[in-house]
Write a protein that binds this DNA or RNA. Structure first.
Length: 116
DNA sequence: AGATTGACTGCAT
DNA sequence: CATGCAGCCAATC
């Protein structure tokens, strides 16, 4: 497990229940990491770690389709169970969007505090 | 070392 | 609103 993946996992683990974050949002908090890497990291995520991967969705507020085929319904099911609000098939960012960890948390864990 | 491949994004059409 | 396309960056041939 390299540090990039570990960093992404730790960040994703900070998303509180009932809220969601986008791939790009996670990526922008990391040093030199694109949105695709976040998805790539989640796709390669080992099963022996407990990460709320279902709270990460794409910028359009929808569940991203994965190569595996299934898993999207599972993701939506978990989100609904946490009380995430869906509006016309998309997550309502106004109500459930994750504002992000506070700056102190980011600093303590070595993430980028200010964008460039 | 170069090409391909993604759970992505933003802008243009 | 749907598609297309370029930019993106680490992992994998």
């Amino acid at each position: 497990m390299n540090s990039l993946y570990a960093g992404i996992y730790r960040l994703v683990a900070q998303i509180p229940p009932g809220q969601v974050a986008t791939y790009g949002q996670i990526a922008s908090m990391m040093q030199r990491c694109g949105a695709r890497q976040v998805g790539y990291a989640l796709a390669a995520m080992p099963d022996d770690v407990d990460i709320p991967w279902h709270r990460v969705i794409n910028a359009r507020g929808e569940i991203s389709a994965r190569s595996g085929g299934s898993g999207e319904s599972e993701q939506k099911r978990r989100l609904l169970a946490e009380g995430v609000v869906f509006n016309r098939g998309r997550v309502d960012f106004e109500a459930c969007g994750w504002p992000g960890p506070d700056w102190r948390w980011l600093e303590r864990h070595g993430y980028r505090v200010f964008p460039d």
